[in-house]
Design a protein around this nucleic acid. Structure first.
Length: 293
DNA sequence: CCGCGGGCCTGAGAGC
DNA sequence: TGCTCTCAGGCCCGCG
């Protein structure tokens, strides 16, 4: 579910509740999510102050005073809720805020700020892992991640270079986190549409001729920047699971041009095409065959 | 090494 | 109402 804009929305929502605050108590309500929790998972969290909350690709990373980093991934259906309950901060008492527990509330952090941070994940494709900050570069989950699409290193030249030796479609290349890290099915479809590039095009045919109409890579980078920034401003896309940490829905789904819009008219002026769906590498691709080449 | 398909889970929605 | 089938913002793993 959550792609970069959703994860960034969650990060911004968690920041005031977690940054500068101490984890008084951590609860893991089952023994595993996607993977079993580490044996010392709880022990390495409790009593630690969160000194910063960052994001790398689709990972949230909480820096702890101990020198550890809490790595969190939302999988397909993960979400965080921040609940404020004065009773939660009362010494020795950590009853569930607002009384009601929802199904699939798997992890709870009781923060010294008085907030409870609750991780909910019906499908349990998400996971959490504590690793030492000085071992981050060796972490298998992060190793091999490509550049941040909103970072300075990500530009047309580097995208074209990363695609040059690929033997796959442009759609598959953009979903490959080694090429660029943070895009998922929705934003790849949307970015390809905006740049009028076919998802079927061979990735290796991406050219970058600055200032010319055939600057495919330049157009793509511009489209990726635009769609991600707009989606972040909208609080992400809520299709079924994604929520802002307040529980409020994101609303970028209303701005989709092709994703989940099969059968609808293409929105490009004077195109007259129709949005189609087909399956590519096991994932739905939505596009307009008339204006995406 | 690379690319692909299967599998991990639960729940929503369609069709019967 | 209920059953069966398909599909879903991701990504690890094993295979060829």
């Amino acid at each position: 579910m959550p792609e970069l804009p959703e994860v960034e929305t969650v990060r911004r929502g968690l920041q005031p509740a977690m940054e500068g605050s101490t984890i008084l108590k951590a609860e893991a309500r089952r023994k595993d999510l996607r993977f079993p929790f580490q044996k010392d998972f709880i022990a390495r969290l409790e009593g630690q102050t969160v000194t910063g909350l960052g994001r790398r690709a689709k990972y949230l990373m909480a820096d702890l005073g101990s020198g550890d980093v809490l790595l969190m991934h939302l999988g397909m259906s993960g979400s965080f809720r921040v609940l404020h309950d004065s009773a939660a901060a009362a010494p020795g008492r950590f009853h569930h805020p607002r009384g009601e527990e929802r199904a699939h509330d798997h992890v709870v952090f009781h923060m010294s700020s008085g907030a409870s941070v609750v991780f909910n994940d019906p499908r349990r494709f998400g996971y959490m892992k504590v690793i030492a900050r000085n071992a981050l570069e060796h972490e298998p989950l992060l190793k091999g991640l490509g550049p941040e699409p909103l970072g300075n290193e990500f530009d047309a030249a580097m995208l074209a270079r990363a695609c040059a030796n690929k033997k796959t479609s442009l759609k598959a290349a953009l979903l490959d986190q080694r090429v660029v890290a943070g895009l998922g099915n929705i934003y790849v479809c949307e970015a390809l549409y905006r740049s009028h590039l076919s998802p079927r095009r061979l990735a290796a045919t991406l050219s970058t001729k600055k200032g010319e109409p055939t600057d495919h890579a330049g157009r793509l980078v511009t489209s990726i920047h635009a769609v991600l920034n707009q989606a972040i401003r909208a609080g992400g896309s809520s299709i079924s699971d994604h929520r802002q940490t307040s529980g409020e829905l994101g609303y970028f789904q209303h701005a989709f041009t092709v994703y989940d819009r099969a059968g609808e008219k293409c929105q490009t002026a004077r195109c007259g095409g129709v949005v189609r769906r087909f399956v590519q590498n096991g994932r739905s691709t939505f596009w307009c065959a008339k204006c995406q080449k």
